[in-house]
Simulated assay, not measured.
Amino acid sequence: MPDISITMIIVLCVAAAAAGWIDAVVGGGGLLLLPALLLGLPHAHPATVLGTNKAVAIVGTTGAAVTYVRKAPVDVKLAVRIGLAALAGSMGGAALAGGISKDALRPLIMGVLVVVAAVVIFKPGFGAAPSASPVSRQRVLLTIGLAGLGIGFYDGLIGPGTGTFLVLALTALLHLDLVTASATAKIVNVCTNAGALAMFAYQGMVLWQLAALMAVFNLAGGMIGAGMALKKGSGFVRGVLLTVVGALVIKLGFEQWG
């Protein structure tokens, strides 16, 4: 365990719990967890911060995924197929991250987020209920390509809001309600987190003692968040979704022009 004050450990544990809750409901918990770790570990190598973040997040994500699978109508096989594609995409994105200007990509991503927010606001039925018609094989393959490879690539290249993008893509492409989309996204996130964590662990870039402590709180937050989403339904998820999208736009805008 690095030399961290008791006060900072408490702050990190609270942040882990809150991030787990946000991530379970609609994705985007990294918006809170990663900055908290950067604040608590100012002298750590960036890769160590990222590796510790993954070690914490995978526990809460797994707990949320299990909670969802037990109570929501999730197609686990499809979710795993999308997750494996996302894992491959994230590896490709990470490999190219050093050669692409993230400053050039942020305005594009912000524009997409603003359009997404507009759709959710002005189309109240978005994700309110699943489609009654079956999803075609072509649409499933499109989802694996876009939500899997595409968003996985984004995760490796930039990262913030990956879970939120997954929820939106799964809702739009597979015509899922927001609760089922969140459940499916959690399984995909488990796959991508596992791959990233394995790489960071192999490189010795994980603070396991700190991660284990924070993971307990992240797990609790994730399971509570999943339970609330299941209980309160798509309207609740929709409200959290708009809040997280707004936070993403502000964060990216600050990084671009702040």
Results as ranks from 00 to 15, higher is better:
residue 190 V to C: 09
residue 190 V to Q: 08
residue 192 T to Q: 12
residue 193 N to I: 06
residue 193 N to D: 10
residue 193 N to P: 08
residue 194 A to Y: 10
residue 195 G to A: 03
residue 195 G to E: 03
residue 196 A to S: 15
residue 197 L to R: 10
residue 198 A to L: 15
residue 199 M to S: 05
residue 200 F to M: 03
residue 201 A to E: 12
residue 202 Y to N: 04
residue 203 Q to H: 13
residue 204 G to W: 08
residue 207 L to N: 06
residue 208 W to N: 00
residue 208 W to S: 00
residue 211 A to C: 04
residue 212 A to D: 08
residue 212 A to C: 13
residue 212 A to V: 13
residue 213 L to M: 13
residue 213 L to C: 06
residue 214 M to S: 04
residue 217 F to P: 09
residue 219 L to M: 08
residue 219 L to Q: 01
residue 219 L to A: 12
residue 220 A to S: 14
residue 221 G to W: 13
residue 223 M to D: 00
residue 224 I to R: 11
residue 225 G to E: 05
residue 227 G to Y: 11
residue 227 G to V: 07
residue 227 G to P: 08
residue 227 G to W: 11
residue 230 L to P: 03
residue 231 K to W: 11
residue 232 K to A: 13
residue 233 G to F: 06
residue 234 S to H: 06
residue 235 G to A: 03
residue 236 F to I: 02
residue 238 R to E: 05
residue 239 G to Q: 08
residue 241 L to I: 05
residue 242 L to V: 09
residue 242 L to T: 02
residue 243 T to Y: 11
residue 244 V to F: 03
residue 244 V to Q: 04
residue 245 V to G: 09
residue 245 V to H: 12
residue 246 G to D: 01
residue 247 A to D: 01
residue 248 L to K: 09
residue 250 I to F: 14
residue 250 I to L: 14
residue 250 I to Q: 02
residue 250 I to K: 05
